[in-house]
Design a binder for these strands. Structure first.
Lengths: 208, 208
DNA sequence: CTTCTTATTAAACAGATGTTTTAAATATAA
DNA sequence: TTATATTTAAAACATCTGTTTAATAAGAAG
């Protein structure tokens, strides 16, 4: 294993703990002791805890968002018509690619995203939409184009229902997998979870 | 407006803040100042913050659970076979009834439930299942009866996906209804929201 | 009234939190 | 080398956390 600098060690420890325990339930002392760095180094390198949280998320978004933009562009540039399944497929690759970026990257990213939407009274939501709002608009219009039979507001609601399903599932994924293990003696990882999630969501959005 | 005792004032302020900000992000000082009571009265009346959280949830569960038990019993006692949509419809009345119990009761209850699953490393989940486990089993078996093609663990996961959809939607219900109003000039209240949710989650749970 | 239980209050407590300071160590450049 | 900038380190800081204490107030019962 290569030697890591302090900044990276902090990010690595922080993303793990933030995903598992949430942002406000993870202290800087817990992060720095896990990262084996000095407490003050967080404020030295990142300024504040809030900026550390944004840096953790940004490291993923900077990989994920351009990749998603690319898959959406490919979908639009092909002059053929596309359906809803193809639009959702644009998400799969950029998401799974995060596992190459970092160990358990897909899982961590989705958990962080879920935490970000639920915790911290929307200042993280603001951070994401102001920095990466374009791709959200692009995705939304792709969904609309793929579902001409659904009204604008119908799509609006069902996309938010879908987002809610994914976000909540990822945020509570540890609790859920723990229950599954104790109740059915069933080992479940995030990839299994996503695989179970897909048919549920697909049936939901194309409901009569 | 009638004069409220200290215990009730604490519960009223606490449920509002817990639903909005989460449990660990809501301090006792914030609760007591909002409730206009002394700080120490929380520990005097409830023992600890943890027990206050349980009391807040219990006040809703004591109304919701018997009502749900009743609607499920009615479904079972009618000798006709029932489908997934009918099972979920058993939830509608008990949930909406909470709006008569407390202002915005439905939304608050579902948000509290969601917070309980995500935060506090499972001690709230333990509290709920040990005190109100029967009705969860009853509902679970009703879902199984309506979906004989699904395995036990498949139902477990899909029910949790459903919970996620509902909880997230309710947690962001204010933002969602505001957007819907400005974008589509569409007035949406909690009741409309739930009626839109039912076909989505019913289709998801019964997915092939 | 007095007595006794219950409820409220202000203050203090011990511990955890994010942040800052000050000094030492390390690296970089001249 | 020396000089300068960057990084690390231990300690202190101020503030916030849940909880407890001890004194007071309120109300009920005899």
């Amino acid at each position: 294993m290569q030697k890591l600098d302090t900044k990276t060690k902090i990010l690595n420890a922080a993303e793990q703990l933030f995903a598992e325990r949430g942002f406000s339930d993870t202290s800087l002392r817990l992060i720095t002791s896990q990262a084996e760095v000095n407490l003050a180094s967080v404020n030295y390198h990142f300024g504040s805890k809030k900026e550390l949280i944004q840096a953790v998320l940004a490291r993923y978004l900077e990989v994920f968002v351009p990749h998603l933009q690319q898959t959406l562009k490919m979908l639009n540039d092909s002059d053929e018509r596309f359906d809803q399944h193809q639009v959702f497929s644009c998400l799969i690759d950029p998401l799974l690619q995060l596992n190459a970026f970092r160990h358990r990257g897909t899982s961590i990213f989705l958990q962080l995203l879920g935490r970000g939407y639920i915790e911290s009274q929307g200042h993280l939501r603001w951070f994401i939409t102001t920095h990466y709002g374009e791709v959200m608009i692009a995705f939304n219009s792709a969904v609309r184009e793929a579902n001409p039979h659904l009204s604008k507001d119908e799509i609006f609601w069902r996309l938010h229902f879908t987002l809610g399903t994914v976000v909540f599932t990822m945020a509570s994924s540890k609790a859920l997998t723990d229950i599954a293990k104790s109740d059915f003696n069933q080992e479940v990882d995030i990839e299994d979870l996503i695989r179970r999630l897909i048919p549920f969501i697909a049936a939901g959005v194309s409901a009569p």
